[in-house]
Design a protein around this nucleic acid. Structure first.
Length: 425
RNA sequence: CGGGGUGUAGCGUAGCCCGGUAUCGCGUCUGCUUUGGGAGCAGAAGGUCGUAGGUUCGAAUCCUGCCACCCCGACCA
């Protein structure tokens, strides 16, 4: 635990891997290419998810859930889509196991249970969703349909990295249906704006919005728009995509509607998504050689309070003295952790919470008890100051806002100083 | 999926070339002393050497298959 991280300058990839593991965000599982997201990492993802979910609902979307399995024939229907995903699909061919008669205690696939048609574990849900929409849409009065789903998907990647590319990942996928191309295009752009807004306001991560070239476009889309952010190693990372699907899926699944004018036409579609890759983007945008630096808007713990004491009696006094401040902070919606774990020393805790990116640390010891003060340390710039306990809650609240802004400003300055114009690609 | 590398206690490692069941550090446990930046001393526990075969009197060590992870490349959110 006491070891230092590999520095970014030494080996950026190694630094990233060690950081994800040491900060307790995730670990490799026993299953190839699949990770375990640990409680601290999942808490950050939950904050992202909750913020995005609210933004989707504020723009008129509803959540729903579609099956994990997609019949092969559905996936085949949109040609470009089928070809694009074919080589990274997990396929279910049987529905039953049986005890191996030749080897006691072992299981084997029951060859009697072969499926008539293979089921594909969804790499994305356009196929199953558009097959469903066919039954929901007859008239322009049924449109638009604005649906989002939070789900896991599987893309059988050969080379994986925690959060950035795993065989199974968590994401959200929006799937909307519209009566006009203009409306669908407007939806595509709107959701790209939502992603950009989320990245900048919550993740403190400046992004560039753009359109993908034909070769990088989503399989089955007419236009793929994306947000990309610049990581500290100078590489851009795609952080979210929003697709204008035209009438490709409506035609493939025969989804037509009667317009106000009585004309029968195919429905216009969009889809858009962000995944747990955002975790990777968050880590690589802000963190330093000491560990994570989390923007307060997404930090599971805003403020950690570390008591410095000798003996149980002194700890009890500090614990009592700190209560009003904790209550005040919590009343302001600030998440506070009071770490009175007696088995760890204060110095160890300081290093640990820096590794985990907690934005503000408060330390209180005997000297503070005498003076009515506390020590406040900022994770973003490492500065420390001793301030009176009275009024500390307001100061911390402002400090959190300042840290959020500072992280964004630093990331923006880094990005802007690394932009180069290119005309060939 | 192509090329390269690694797998030994919870973690990081020595030993492997030249076969004789295993080294060190961190962590863990117990006790005492400590506590304003990853504590000190003393003692203790913990290992089917990734996995399955093969060679051998004997395999962490040699051979083969498989699995996992890391790095580089192609592909992708």
């Amino acid at each position: 635990m006491a070891e230092k991280l590999t520095t970014r300058a030494t080996d950026y990839s190694k630094w990233y891997n060690e950081l994800v593991i040491n900060a307790d965000l995730a670990e490799h599982s026993a299953v190839r290419g699949c990770m375990v997201i640990k409680p601290y990492g999942f808490a950050i993802w939950e904050k992202m998810r909750d913020a995005l979910d609210k933004m989707f609902k504020d723009t008129g979307h509803q959540n729903a859930y579609f099956p994990l399995f997609v019949p092969r024939s559905f996936l085949e229907k949109e040609e470009g889509h089928a070809e694009g995903f074919a080589k990274e699909c997990a396929v279910v061919t049987h529905y039953r196991l049986k005890v191996n008669p030749d080897e006691k205690g072992k299981l084997m696939v029951d060859s009697e249970s072969k499926l008539e048609e293979e089921l594909i574990v969804r790499p994305t849900s356009e196929a199953i969703i558009w097959n469903t929409y066919k039954g929901w849409i007859q008239s322009y009065r049924d449109l638009p349909i604005l649906i989002n789903q939070w789900a896991n998907v599987v893309r059988w990647e050969m080379r994986t990295r925690l959060f950035l590319r795993t065989a199974e990942f968590l994401w959200q996928e929006g799937h909307t249906a519209h009566s006009t191309a203009q409306e669908a295009i407007a939806e595509t752009k709107q959701m790209l704006e939502v992603y950009a807004d989320f990245a900048e306001r919550f993740m403190a991560m400046p992004v560039i919005k753009g359109s993908k070239s034909e070769s990088e476009r989503f399989a089955g889309a007419l236009d793929t728009m994306c947000i990309e952010a610049l990581m500290q190693d100078g590489k851009a990372l795609q952080a979210g995509t929003s697709h204008f699907l035209g009438q490709n899926f409506a035609k493939a699944f025969d989804v037509k509607f009667t317009s106000k004018e009585g004309v029968l036409d195919y429905v216009w579609a969009t889809s858009w998504g962000v995944s747990t890759r955002l975790m990777g983007a968050l880590i690589m945008t802000h963190s330093d050689d000491q560990g994570l630096r989390l923007p307060p808007m997404l930090a599971p713990i805003h403020v950690v309070i570390v008591p410095i004491y000798k003996g149980e009696e002194q700890l009890a006094m500090i614990s009592e003295k700190i209560q009003p401040l904790m209550s005040e902070l919590r009343a302001k919606g600030i998440t506070v952790k009071y770490d009175n774990d007696d088995t760890k020393r204060s110095g160890w805790k300081f290093a640990e919470y820096e590794l985990k990116g907690v934005p503000v640390r408060v330390a209180i010891g005997p000297k503070d008890m005498e003076n009515g003060t506390i020590e406040i340390a900022r994770r973003d710039n490492g500065t420390k100051q001793t301030i009176p306990m009275a009024g500390a809650a307001e100061l911390i609240q402002h400090l959190l806002d300042e840290i959020q802004k500072n992280l964004f400003d630093q990331a923006l300055a880094h990005r802007d100083s690394h932009i180069t114009e290119v005309n060939t690609y």
